[in-house]
């Protein structure tokens, strides 16, 4: 028979030497290089798994050891095994419990009384391979879960029919001040200020009709503290445990809006100041300029010194006039920019 040339490192935690020899013999039939290490007690197994001389490909575990047995043994060994598959060795009398142990994370079980070289070999290859796949799936699941859980933006999933929260990420918990349990007892309508929760069903209508659509909205939300914030929400329909669910990403734009409001108010003030310059301040200035002109023609008999002083008044008023015109020109360009934006 063709033998597996791959080298296997296998830990056998088994206090019955006869059983160990049997395993050793059977393995030799299918595997060319099977490096077995036998350990008889849980304590010894713990030592070796905590400071492994090399990584094991697989662990065989007898479910009754002199110092520990049953569920506690399984849990401890699985914890120590990490991503190494653990196969339980058992007799008929413990079969029910052994089957149950699969749910604890044991990869497979072998009945000692029915052991054959073929079954043993198949179990090893199958368990190693399957463990690789499940690890991959778990890592991938964790990655996607992290995308949601570790997102710096608050996110949640809610039931589109009941509006109840189904899942909330840490950022949402931090931002809104509700614990996960509190969130799960609320519906999305509870986050809206009084009188602003109507129309939610209508907002969701389009999203439910077109599963691929993404909808952005700006709402006001209440934090647990009662503080009102302005948020931009992005909705996307999401299949979630067979429910009609919506994934929501929340972007708090309260500060941004406040900044814009401040800037707009300042702009308004600047425009008013410019308006005062070009209309209000200029009125007495125009009067002054007119008076200087009139005086010029009426007082031709002034002496040279007085004429010079009169000239200074005219020049000063003229300068002031230029300044006001400049301010007015600048404010007109601002107005122009404003209109272009609209």
């Amino acid at each position: 028979m063709h033998k597996d040339k791959k080298a296997y490192h296998i830990l056998v935690i088994e206090d019955n030497f006869g059983d160990f020899v049997l395993i050793e013999e059977y393995l030799a039939e299918n595997i060319l290089e099977a490096n077995l290490k036998q350990i008889e007690t849980f304590q010894a197994a713990r030592k070796i798994l905590q400071n492994p001389p090399g990584k094991f490909d697989l662990i065989f575990l007898d479910l009754t050891l002199p110092d520990l047995s049953g569920e506690k043994l399984i849990v401890e060994i699985l914890e120590l095994a990490g991503d190494t598959p653990v196969v339980a060795l058992t007799g008929f009398s413990d079969l029910d419990f052994t089957i149950k142990s699969l749910s604890l994370g044991v990869s497979d079980y072998l009945l000692k009384d029915e052991l054959t070289p073929t079954i043993l070999y198949k179990t090893i290859v199958y368990s190693i391979q399957r463990k690789k796949f499940t690890d991959q799936i778990q890592r991938s699941e964790k990655r996607y879960s992290d995308l949601f859980q570790l997102s710096p933006l608050p996110m949640w999933v809610f039931d589109a029919d009941t509006l109840k929260f189904l899942s909330i990420n840490q950022a949402a918990i931090n931002h809104y001040g509700y614990s996960e349990e509190e969130f799960l007892a609320l519906s999305i309508a509870d986050l809206r200020p009084k009188g602003e929760s109507h129309g939610i069903a209508k907002e969701l209508e389009n999203l439910l009709l077109d599963p691929s659509s993404v909808q952005k909205n700006v709402f006001r939300h209440l934090k647990k503290s009662g503080e009102t914030i302005t948020v931009e929400t992005t909705y996307k329909r999401l299949p979630f445990n067979e429910r009609n669910a919506m994934l929501v990403i929340i972007n708090d734009i309260t500060d941004r809006n406040r900044h814009i409001e401040t800037i707009e108010k300042q702009n308004q003030n600047l425009m008013e100041i410019a308006w005062i310059q070009s209309h209000v301040v200029r009125a007495p200035l125009a009067r002054l300029l007119g008076l200087v002109n009139l005086l010029d023609t009426e007082t031709s008999d002034l002496n040279a010194e007085s004429k010079k002083l009169m000239g200074y008044i005219r020049d000063s008023a003229g300068e002031l006039d230029e300044i006001i015109r400049e301010i007015s020109r600048k404010s007109e360009t601002i107005e122009h920019l404003d209109k272009n934006e609209d």
Binding site: W275, S278, H279, R282, A283, L285, A286, R287, I324, R325, S328, E332
Partner: peptide, 12 residues
């Protein structure tokens, strides 16, 4: 007929 006069310098 009207002749407008203004002290404003706004071109509008």
């Amino acid at each position: 007929s009207v002749i407008l006069i203004t002290s404003s310098v706004a071109s509008a």
